[in-house]
Write a protein that binds this DNA or RNA. Sequence first.
DNA 1: CGATTTCATGTAATCCATTACATTGCGGCG
DNA 2: CGCCGCAATGTAATGGATTACATGAAATCG
Lengths: 355, 355
Amino acid sequence: MSGKGSKGGRKDGKGAAAEAPPARVSTVKEIAAIAKVSVATVSRALQRPEVVSEATRQRIHEVVKRLGYTPNALARNLRTARTRLIVALLPDIANPFFSEVIRGIEQVAHENGYSVLLGETQGSVVREQAYADMVAARRADGIITMSPRVPAIPIQGRQPVVNACEYVKDGQISSVYIDNVAAAGVAVDYLAMLGHREIAFVAGPPSSPICVDREQGYRLALQRAKLPVHPGLIVTGDFSIEAGERAVEQLLAQGQSFTALFCSNDEMAIGAMRALSSHGLSVPDDVSVVGFDDIRFARYTSPPLTTVAQPKNALGREAMSMMLELLSDAEVPPRKRVLSADLVVRGSTAPRRPA
Amino acid sequence: MSGKGSKGGRKDGKGAAAEAPPARVSTVKEIAAIAKVSVATVSRALQRPEVVSEATRQRIHEVVKRLGYTPNALARNLRTARTRLIVALLPDIANPFFSEVIRGIEQVAHENGYSVLLGETQGSVVREQAYADMVAARRADGIITMSPRVPAIPIQGRQPVVNACEYVKDGQISSVYIDNVAAAGVAVDYLAMLGHREIAFVAGPPSSPICVDREQGYRLALQRAKLPVHPGLIVTGDFSIEAGERAVEQLLAQGQSFTALFCSNDEMAIGAMRALSSHGLSVPDDVSVVGFDDIRFARYTSPPLTTVAQPKNALGREAMSMMLELLSDAEVPPRKRVLSADLVVRGSTAPRRPA
DNA sequence: CGATTTCATGTAATCCATTACATTGCGGCG
DNA sequence: CGCCGCAATGTAATGGATTACATGAAATCG
């Protein structure tokens, strides 16, 4: 019985003159007709092979393969009310920090049969909302947002939203992020340990809780080191390279004296280093610089940047895992997951030069 | 008659007394029932308002708005056989060159009601094919690929594929790219003009036609400058920063003497600069370095990198425009669009130091 | 041996919006 | 006056798969 196989009987496949050799956009119906079974059986053979008898299953699979049939995902999705698509919302794709988080998301998504829809918002609330509405329109199953604003999805029931890298106080949103207070603290502790007493800080936009946390970490570390918090040493930037340059210009213009500078992200640190050296100040001899994120280029600045390494890939992977959990089980409560970040010491920091 | 509305009549729905107020996931049917019209009219009021009478249209829109109704995109897509999704296939999201191209794609897509599905392949043919199959499964309308391999989509008829940044000889695929021969030539001409006579070249993977072109441009420029093409001065890398470092190591290990180095992309140039300086060679005093792409960080290396600026955003925008054209008009023939690239002179190049 | 499961498969409802075609009512024209 | 055409709307087919329920046959049980 089992020995027969497909070899025997008749000439296989493409030689069939009368049949339609080029694969048309076949449907279940066609497959069913050719395999002489009902559409239900075809669907079952593909979805839950174990409920179909061995013989029928093989026959169907053979036909499916021969015609190159792929079930129409739209029809399936309509029926199952699942698109297996999630939107990754982020302010800026060109930011290498986000690209690496996205990659983590994409990996886990892919491992689980999901795909990632890219939603760059450029900070626009309108676009953010437009992507959120895609979930309402059943074009996507959920949203992972990397901005501190979490859009409301106009559906009833639980919001399929995960906040990655950022978080909001609201207890209803699942989030994955690092302990920014602690991470910033470690960086500043290290600078203090090197003997620096005037440590400047380039903050991020205060609208984002994580930026507030990083500043908080900075302040607490200064306290631990018994150093005064000098408001003149704190400047705010918007995470761009240019903001880092401007921050240094501003500090210098104000005549602030400082021997160390902690920036809320690597790009601002890169800008800061550029501005420092164009003012004839050497990094790290005159000023030590520490960044945040550990983007790929941090290793290749000159000098290589000392920075707080966020587990970018893990943040993305964890965010997507939480999303899968949310989607599969309507009961799981929202949760916050806090990962840890480590200081990576490279060449942009040095002991304070004895004056 | 029209004034009554839904408030009056009877208790709504399935007997759930307290339920009603929160907006359920309404459907056309519901809207139709409430607005006292047929589903067809509702659909028309939303799709082609001009064919519906003023009064009806307003009534329907009011109900739609009140219930926060959004048509189910899956159902619509099934019917219209369009997902308004396109896949952007690229080897590596973390590469800033691609992120900026993607951004261009995303912009045009968004302007035209399309969304971008992210397909990172990590160079895997399997994943490439998996994304191509999504088009066959009607999960996406087309593919923009940024790799030199163009996957075959198992559908009959024209392939909805656009090749961006790369291109294949095959005349069937629409492509947007720059004139790599000319662009590389300009860079090398410039080095020659600065007096360099031993110009090394870090090539990209020869499997990609654009890399072959860049090498060709290098060779032609050397000929124009009446300089010999020395095989020992050509090394191949894989576009990574590390490959740039290795390339320099190799050149130095072989005892090659060179005063200029042209790299097939900026990341390899960054790696090369790092390797040169760690060997005590100064850029640009000892060796001039030129990159390719002009990624955002090129401006912030030290010294700032002289490089060939690809119109990244335009490449993306143009690719998506071509895709829209392909999708809307089954007749347009595939075409190749060649954009131009300019040399951006920064600090990593200098006249050859008189020996 | 008749009754009850169990297994494999078939029939038809369902998901929800779009749209071809049918219908109705009304003003215009010969 | 009767027919035509147009405007507005309704009815029902359609897209393609999934799946609840039904059916028939074989297997198991008392």
